[in-house]
Amino acid sequence: MELYEMKLINYKVEHGKLLRISVEFQGDRITQIRITGDFFVHPEESLFEIERLLIGKRVNEIKPVLRYFVRTKGVQLVGFSVEDLVEALNLAMVDKETQA
């Protein structure tokens, strides 16, 4: 049985803002996630919806899900992109593996 592992990652977006992600994995699935930082999301609730969307998903399958959400809900992200968020989570995953 794979352990739950909590990871904290600070990801600075070049020319953008700082993403701080606190994420718990079970294997390669996200079981908990909290995204904080000095960015903006419009409308604000979308960020919480994004966090909920990610629960239970594998990191390598979230990109299209996030893109679809942002596009269909007309969400505007200021200071980071879906690409950055996925990249940060990939880094958190890698970190996890090298520690194991």
Partner: peptide, 30 residues
């Protein structure tokens, strides 16, 4: 810098004022 462009679909009809492209850059997604 743009990091992702969601292009419109070839063959589709587009109306003035409708979204034709979704894009992500380091500073903004919209």
């Amino acid at each position: 810098e743009f990091v992702y462009i969601e292009l419109p679909e070839q063959g589709k009809e587009i109306k003035k004022g409708e979204t034709y492209v979704s894009m992500e850059s380091v500073k903004w997604s919209g």
